[in-house]
């Protein structure tokens, strides 16, 4: 099945075409915020093709990450 790991936005840059640095399961990547210009640092988003397409509220992001951890797909958080 398709799986979507919530990515944490760590920084935002650009005005015309906003871009974000994201932490995706421990990997540092970038995505475009053209479809979610309201997203900001600290938000969790789902990313497709380099575009953030879904903004998750903190509870939903936590629940999703907890599901991945519960199934052993992701390791528990490293403090």
């Amino acid at each position: 099945m398709c799986v979507g790991v919530p990515a944490l936005i760590t920084s935002v840059s650009g005005d015309v075409l906003p871009m974000a640095s994201i932490d995706l399961a421990g990997r540092q990547e970038e995505c475009c915020l053209a479809y979610l210009p309201e997203a900001t640092v600290g938000d969790h988003v789902l990313v497709q093709n380099g575009f953030a397409v879904q903004l998750l509220d903190p509870e939903a992001a936590a629940a999703s990450l907890a599901a991945f951890i519960e199934l052993g797909v992701l390791a528990p958080p490293v403090p």
């Binding site: 399961a25 421990g26 992701l74 390791a75 528990p76 958080p77 490293v78 403090p79």
Partner: peptide
């Protein structure tokens, strides 16, 4: 804090 990926292909 961060999460370490265990299943690379799902986010790649």
């Amino acid at each position: 804090m961060t999460h370490r990926l265990m299943l690379d292909e799902i986010v790649d």
